[in-house]
Structure formats: C-alpha cells, structure tokens
Design a protein around this nucleic acid. Structure first.
Lengths: 151, 151
DNA sequence: GAATTTGTGGGTAATAGTGGGTTGTAGTGG
DNA sequence: CCACTACAACCCACTATTACCCACAAATTC
C-alpha cells in the first residue's frame, strides 16, 4: 500500500504538506481521516488511515488489562493516538506534543511502511539508517525468516 | 528475464534513458510502472517492474514486526521503495534521496539481474567487480550450494 | 550514405509546496 | 455570562519543482 521516502518541511505552524501522490489515495479511503500516534520502539511517529487504525486499536483494547506490559502499551499507543485530517491544501497539522516526542524540527522524513507512514526528524533518521545498514552488514547472521528470502 | 550491462548517463535533472530494448518489455507488462529501492548489502539501487515488486513487499510485510532484524529490513527496503514511471521519451527520473544513497553521479551502470535491474555508480561498480573476482579466485572453497553447479 | 531509431538537452506550462493574513471557534479567566 | 486570548481552519498569493514537449545529436540499420 504505502511505500517510499520523501523529504518534507514542517512550517512554522507545525503543518506538513502530504506529497500529492498520496493525497488522492488518502482522500479516497477515508475522506482524509487519519490517526497519528507514537512508535514506542523508535522516536518517530506513525500515521494510519482511519480504517487501518481501527482494528489496531480494537486489538490493543482486547489485551488483558491486568497485565502491566499490556497496560503500558495501551497507555502509550492509544493515549497518544490523535485524529487529524488533511486541510484544504492537502497538509496535515501535527499536534505539538507528538512533534515534540519525535523531535521534529523543520526538516523531516516521511516514509511509507505498508499500512502506515512513519515520520522522522531528518537528522535522526539519517543516523538511524546508518546504524541499520551497519548492523545488517556486520551481522553475518540473519534471522531464519530472512535467510531464504530472495529479493 | 532481464540480463546484461549498459553504461548509462544521468542528465542534470536526474533522469536516465532506459535502453530501448527494455522499454517495450517494461511497457507491456505494467504500462511502464516500476519500483526503485535500495540494496541493503551494497550501495546500489534495485529497479523492479511493479508486478515483480508487489509479492516482495507482501512477503516483507508478513515478517514478524517485533523481530528487530525484520523491522530493520522493512524500514530500509519498503521505506525506500518509490514508484516511478517511464516518461514519454522512455526515461525514468530517479528520486534524489535514492540517487544520493547509491552515490550516483553522471556515469552509471545498469545491470539486468533476472526479475530486476541494478543501478550502480560506474566507478563504484568497477571497483566492486574487481573485488568480487579477486574473492572468487582467492577462496579455494565454494559454498556447498555451488559445488555441484555446472556452467 | 541516407533514413530511422535512440539518446540528450533544455524550454514551458502545469502542478505541487510554502508562507502568511484573516476569520471563526473553543478555551480561559474575570 | 461576557471578554479576551490562543489556536486552528481556510484562503490566497508566491515560489519551486516536475512532467511534458520539442528539437537536435548520435548512433544504427538498411
């Protein structure tokens, strides 16, 4: 569904222009209704079309709520999940608390990841990408799932 | 499916002319729809016809997302995978972030590799080819999978 | 060597991205 | 309950980028 990188600038009001190629797609499936939340493993944000998000929230809510780890995840992910829409210019306004979490300044990177997008601070992503590549190349060993994977 | 090397020049706008012999083939199967992404092991780019790419993305997305190695691969490969098309002159415009990744300047090499093409900076490929040849000749030993391979 | 196909280089029009100004609404405090 | 403030939505205008087109140069082919 979604893929590809784009360098995007955040304006002074915290808005970002969604690349035109995705706008139509987003408008079609949900009339541009989106949900942004945080990624708990990396300091980046996740943007889902509403219909992709809903089953995820449902599954999170179904987790046993006496389990501390489950409660943590629920608090963090559902807690930060914010509804947003595309404005008339195809831009989205990122809520200040989430921008802050991901350390988003002016220059950022938007990356398609299947059913969602990821938003990274540009410098942070560059650095992270470097370390991902280094890890892949250094580890002689790939996990089993990947060993017989052919691209 | 695809094979052979071509020396190609990138123009000032980052466009490359696809060799005529492949154009018709690419146009037939997908109306010229292609996906470019990065190779994680080498600093080169991979170009797939859309229909070849889709099952790969599906397989990548199916990997367990709590597995760190799988997440890395997904981020890098799906994250960089960008849709492009042939223009009316049979050229493709390579996205700036990907050109940058592969260090593509003016002179580059396009190489058929079965279901995809690889794009290399010319100087980098020459160097890499040298070291591949050297490695093959120095290592007396071939991996088992190759021992009973006859050319 | 002429004709056709392929590769290359820009110019231009259309589209996308950017930066505020203005109005409306919701939240806050008196 | 009203006034004031702050933020968000909308609009418009400007800039940058891209896609498209055309024309020429180079290379093949006949």
């Amino acid at each position: 569904m979604f893929r590809g990188v784009h360098n995007i600038n955040l304006d002074a009001k915290g808005r970002m222009a969604v690349p035109a190629r995705y706008r139509q797609l987003l408008r079609e499936c949900n009339d541009g209704a989106l949900v942004v939340t945080i990624d708990t493993e990396e300091t980046c944000l996740l943007v889902y079309p509403l219909n992709e998000w809903e089953p995820i929230q449902a599954k999170l809510e179904a987790l046993p709520s006496f389990n501390p780890a489950a409660r943590r995840i629920q608090r963090l992910i559902i807690g930060h999940a914010t509804d947003i829409e595309l404005d008339t210019n195809g831009r989205m306004l990122l809520p200040a608390p989430l921008r802050e979490y991901a350390g988003l300044q002016k220059k950022m990177v938007m990356m398609g990841q299947g059913n969602k997008f990821e938003l990274w601070d540009e410098a942070h992503w560059d650095e992270r990408r470097q370390s991902y590549l280094a890890e892949i190349r250094e580890e002689g060993q790939m996990p089993d799932e990947l060993m017989n994977f052919s691209l």
